[in-house]
């Protein structure tokens, strides 16, 4: 009984250790990799900074202090919300992140939904109809899905469905002239629903489809294959035979009793894929001119905006760790054996 509690505590501890490690990694990226303090100051202040500005910068960030001490100063700044000023927007990068993150979270939610909606049925069908024509068609689709880079999918979708057929908008989050829903969470998908602003909601959804699908295609292929393999394995087990011989209808058997044990290996990869959307969205946000966190990060990288780069890596890492911890919990709820193995 205590296994589950133990397991949760253990996963939380792992999560916190990972966050600590992430902070060290990001610190190295922020303070060590750029080179000497002067190099770093030039990187953070821009190439035209004066000598006195560079000296002030070095003093302010204690760049001449020993590295462990610098780390403490840096982490203090992170916790007190002092993340440094962005070269491009001239604001605290934390403010920027808070402003740009919701648009990417919209994308992430939509991608997560699309992946599940497509890969679960495909995986179940392919597994149940193993080695039939349908299975082979799905296999070909998954091969192509894995091999085509997301930015190529994005360009093709934009060109054919957006530009040629006018089925979907080509760029942006909302059509011109449509006001965003009242700001509560910043996520249009959620704000639109809460405030009942369905016009904006539908419009936002319509804009989300192409970018989300570009991001979802690779994961869809991956997840379908994993689910198919698990279904193939589980349908030859005794419990499936028992359920079949009890006369359980095929539909119920597949969607309920076969799905639950088979979906577990898929969920871990699913979580990894969904939380990677933040990183993989870089190219897709660029192509669809999506005003999100990843495009902000990409601009920061291209303009060598050090503080912003650091903020982006840190926030993406934190979200990634949170997502993975959450999935570990879910998996342990679905499959008690996991927490029994890990909880001791």
């Amino acid at each position: 009984m205590n296994y589950a509690v133990n397991y949760v505590l253990k996963r939380l501890a792992y999560g916190i250790i990972s966050l600590f490690g992430l902070s060290i990694l990001v610190f190295v990226l922020a303070r060590v990799l750029p080179g000497t303090p002067v190099d770093l100051a030039r990187l953070a202040l821009g190439p035209n900074a004066s000598i006195s500005a560079i000296n002030t910068f070095i003093d302010e960030l204690h760049l001449n202090a020993p590295l462990p001490l610098q780390y403490l100063y840096w982490i203090e700044g992170i916790f007190t919300g002092n993340w440094g000023i962005s070269l491009v927007t001239k604001r605290n990068v934390l403010t920027d992140v808070i402003e740009f993150l919701p648009a990417t979270l919209d994308l992430l939610i939509m991608t997560a939904i699309i992946i599940l909606l497509i890969s679960v049925p495909l995986g179940l069908v392919a597994g149940r109809m193993q080695n039939t024509f349908v299975d082979n068609v799905i296999r070909v689709i998954t091969y192509v899905g894995i091999a085509v880079p997301s930015f190529v999918v994005a360009i093709l979708l934009q060109l054919f469905l957006g530009y040629d057929l006018h089925l979907f908008p080509i760029i942006g989050q909302l059509s011109p002239g449509i006001a965003p829903p009242p700001h509560i969470t910043g996520l249009y998908l959620i704000d639109g629903l809460i405030t009942g602003d369905f016009g904006a909601w539908v419009n936002a959804l319509w804009h989300l489809i192409l970018p989300s699908f570009s991001l979802a295609l690779g994961p869809i292929a991956q997840e379908t294959r994993i689910l198919r393999a698990a279904v193939v394995e589980n349908q030859n087990r005794d419990f499936t035979l028992a359920e079949t011989s009890h006369g359980l209808p095929e539909g119920l058997l597949t969607t309920r009793y076969l799905l639950k044990p088979s979906i577990i290996p898929m969920l871990t990869v699913y979580a990894l894929d969904v939380s990677s959307v933040i990183a993989n969205a870089f190219l897709v946000e660029l192509i669809f001119d999506w005003p999100g966190f990843s495009r902000y990060g990409l601009n920061a990288m291209l303009s060598k905006d050090l503080n912003a780069i650091i903020a982006v890596v840190l926030v993406a890492g934190i979200l990634f760790i949170i997502a993975n911890t959450l999935v570990d919990f879910t998996v342990s709820r679905l499959d008690p054996r996991v927490s029994e193995e890990m909880g001791d």
């Binding site: 990972s18 870089f282 990409l298 060598k304 780069i309 890596v313 990634f320």
Partner: peptide, 22 residues
Amino acid sequence: RMADIFVAVPPLLLALAVASVM
């Protein structure tokens, strides 16, 4: 634990960040 930490940052993001700082 070291491996866990590096796994916590998606490869494309880490690669982009390192490539841009250097």
